[in-house]
Design a protein around this nucleic acid. Sequence first.
DNA 1: TTGGTTAAATAAACTGAATTGATTAATCTT
DNA 2: AAGATTAATCAATTCAGTTTATTTAACCAA
Lengths: 406, 406
Amino acid sequence: MLTGTNLTYTKAFNHRIVFETIRLNGPISRADIARATNLTAQTVSNIVNRLLKRNLIMEGKRMQKKRGAPSVTLDINPKGAYSIGLDFNRDHLTGILVDLAGNLVDKKYFEVNDPTPEASIKLMAETAEDLFEKDKYKNSYLSGIGIGFPGPMQVNQDNTVSNVVNPKSFTHWKNVPVLKLLSQHIDAPIFLENNASAAAIGERWYGVGRNISSFLYSFFGVGLGGGIILNGQLYEGANDNAGELGYTPMDAGVSPLSNSDHPHIGEHFDLTRLYNWLAKSDIKVKSPQDLRALYLDKNEKFMEWIELAKELLAPAFLSVENLLDPEVIILGGRLPEEILKDFSDGLSTRLNNMRIVEKTTGPEFLTATAGEDAAALGAATLPMFDLYAPQPQVLIKKNGQNNSDD
Amino acid sequence: MLTGTNLTYTKAFNHRIVFETIRLNGPISRADIARATNLTAQTVSNIVNRLLKRNLIMEGKRMQKKRGAPSVTLDINPKGAYSIGLDFNRDHLTGILVDLAGNLVDKKYFEVNDPTPEASIKLMAETAEDLFEKDKYKNSYLSGIGIGFPGPMQVNQDNTVSNVVNPKSFTHWKNVPVLKLLSQHIDAPIFLENNASAAAIGERWYGVGRNISSFLYSFFGVGLGGGIILNGQLYEGANDNAGELGYTPMDAGVSPLSNSDHPHIGEHFDLTRLYNWLAKSDIKVKSPQDLRALYLDKNEKFMEWIELAKELLAPAFLSVENLLDPEVIILGGRLPEEILKDFSDGLSTRLNNMRIVEKTTGPEFLTATAGEDAAALGAATLPMFDLYAPQPQVLIKKNGQNNSDD
DNA sequence: TTGGTTAAATAAACTGAATTGATTAATCTT
DNA sequence: AAGATTAATCAATTCAGTTTATTTAACCAA
């Protein structure tokens, strides 16, 4: 709804603006922050002192530039807050602990096999507890826990999680109240998100998207997912389906991996199907790392898949260009970097040829900075982003919400 | 850049919030506004009194609901401000005057033929002056003049206007500094926009988009254009090309209207080419109204075009659904309402069949409320939107900008 | 009819955010 | 060493929404 604002919200927003300015430009002085943000020096000074008290930033050494008094530099305090990210899948759970600067502090990896909700919740809770041991991080602040779910699963409005789209991959999951169950074990804010969207936020906050306000993140996970960042914020669409390139139709028979009535390109990127298809040619793979080896070997069969992948992605990305006109398209996920790089190069040239003559520019293709842990890092970013990112929504009143925060 | 905010911006934003609440829900009492906006009654009272003083709203009669003192209703004052919209094309210029409530007050129409910039500027300035005669609207406020340019023309960053995409249609136009030239004749804020984007804003502010925060507006003008509204704001993309469905490729030979090396669906919607193609079958048409007659006659040749149009639009809109996931797709522009309605019905059912099985929902298709003057009304909305719409940007400082406004 | 209750609107005093103006301190320039 | 320049902050001010209290107008029950 149309809600107003007041000074409390102003304050919260300005705190975030100053924090973000330090995060992106640090080390930076109070005076430079004032210039960058159009806030007065006095205001910046007050906000900085409050952020210092909260241990979110720290002072560095004095720096003299030209004349005048030397300035004290400010920088993010990595130990000011921590966050846990869980990347949950049918076959594995990755849990990571990151600090405020986005550094990977700790990591746990578990192989699972189509786990029940009960077993999953238990594993998630234990992993989270292990990652942030109370005595080890005695005086530190845990901003929260983010959990990324594989693309085909859906985080419902009521925060239950179900797999509406592909019931066969997660046999035991249907409208599971993950948030409710987890909060019985965990005393910290919990955030649920589709792993592609989470990865997009991660890339926006810590990765190549730091200075890019609009991009599409193509996430190669178990299948093909997507997350869209517009004006610095996650755009999920009316039904949380925005960016789902995988649904793009393709002609029947084009991909040997397709087996549906409505062939769509997502099928070609289903890793399980890819492994099975390769197995038919006696090529044994069971992980993205195995694919990397195949790729470096220039394995003929796998190269066939790669070429077809680019063939299928090209028109989909042309649609992205025409419809969304993003500055950048980021490729990331579980596929090895070399393969993503191959995609990005191949797609760039393909799009140049497909574009109508009068148009000369298109989005730039980049590969994500986060590697195989993109989803987990993205999940870990969710609480951080919620607490510290300068989102315009912060400025707008919400019923019964208290914004005080000193 | 990352800029902070302060109370001045808060005030400006809250004024817009209250105004918009009245606009959308009026007649409405101060107390109801307070409840709707989460602002206190006192704040609303203050803001309302300032808006009354500026003549933007007006008091109605007392209304008693249950117990307690009866409330005074408030409503938009249509005569509080006026706006001029110019829809400029190769073949015509439509100029309209609308009031604050979006009512059409006056309209001028001129046929032109590939006019030079000089002649065009002169005609625009004269039309604007005629529409808002000083003595006739003595005590009224003109919020500004909006001008919509046909899709293939481009409003450059430096506010010059050129036709980069299709140089053949506007032979005399290349990097014309429209804003500079017009402001020599006109003493009011001037806004330039692509006509599809303008129409989208018009529909957002006055039309079916009033309560829809994200939609794609497909604009059937001289060709096929598009405007995207996300979170209530116009999203133009990194190169102002977002929503340009016309660039969607199609196979060669599919549309008899195509003649390019890179066939794209926009070619099928080029009205000039359509007229010429129909002429080959001895069907003489030269206006959208003529097409309406053909449609009502169920003219065989024209129906062929209609069917192919839907055939081409369907996959493009499926991309929209998958990528943007909008609540609604609005069809509008110069094509007669009956044809747009046909498109919308046909596309709805087509998309239902193309969608992969597991997905059940898609965007709703609506036809625009504004008819053939959609572009002009949209253009007229630009100044209004800029002055009165509750945009989050209002909350953010801009260098050297003074936000005082009492 | 009367007194009590409910609600709208606003006046007056308050709170808390950024701002403005003044001051101090550190460094460079000449 | 004196003056200029810049960073940082203290102190006082401004001005937005908020809180509290008051007035007014209606309804309702006895």
